[in-house]
Amino acid sequence: MSTSVAEHETRHEALPARPKELAMHFDTLHQQYSTGKLAMWLFLGQELLFFCGLFTAYAVYRGNHQEMFHYAHYFLDWRLGGLNTVVLLTSSLTAAWSVRCAQLEQRKGLLITLALTFLCAGAFMVVKYFEYSHKLHIGAVWGSNFGVATADLPPALLEKYPGMTGQQLQLMGMGTFFAIYFCMTGLHGIHVLVGMGLYAWLFVRALRGHFNRRYYGAVDNVALYWHIVDMIWIFLFPLLYLIG
């Protein structure tokens, strides 16, 4: 069988320089890298649709129960949410920076930025922990389990609406708001945890010196994932905390 001249050339070119990171079914590192990246973008598209369902539920219930959402926002502390927003934005910066470090083979910078991203994610989860435990403590939870004693209501709420009782809120269906709140932030939190796992993994690989100028796809793709997790929070924050 006669193959064309061009084909011969590519075959011979690819053979001697075959780097160890190159999987057997790719011809070049660039092809491998761009394939991984395309797959990651598709995965992120999938992630967006995954969250879309919850955003739809949010929209439907908010449309039908304006007042419930209004009262509910008093339960959320915008300062804690704001703090978390800053923490996540910082981590996005360090994530992007880590990609740059990997591309430039700055080993120390790479390790630092990966570690910082991991720590920011951890800080986010700590704040989340305090928010959650307070709500669970006073009984600001989902469905018919919602039951907050009037004494535990947020002071700002009582100030604006004196005479409001926990029972009134319960009858208003506040449990549904918290069902949505916990599902959305919970699902997002799971993604943050996964992100922490990924950054730990990258850190170990970077320690072992796996990445170089031509092979840094993993750092790039995890950073993409991390930006999406961030972006979802950027929507969650105003929709949940800032709806006065």
């Binding site: 598209g45 995954f50 969250f51 879309c52 989902w142 469905g143 018919s144 389990n145 549904t176 599902c183």
Partner: peptide
């Protein structure tokens, strides 16, 4: 593009089944 939505729906159903959170169940709102 479509499968994540059923994943979410059944994930929510699972949570609903375990904790009765009141997203799909009329008796909880």
């Amino acid at each position: 593009l479509a499968t994540p939505v059923v994943g979410l729906t059944l994930g929510l159903s699972l949570v609903e089944h375990m904790f009765k959170i009141g997203i799909f169940l009329p008796q909880y709102g």
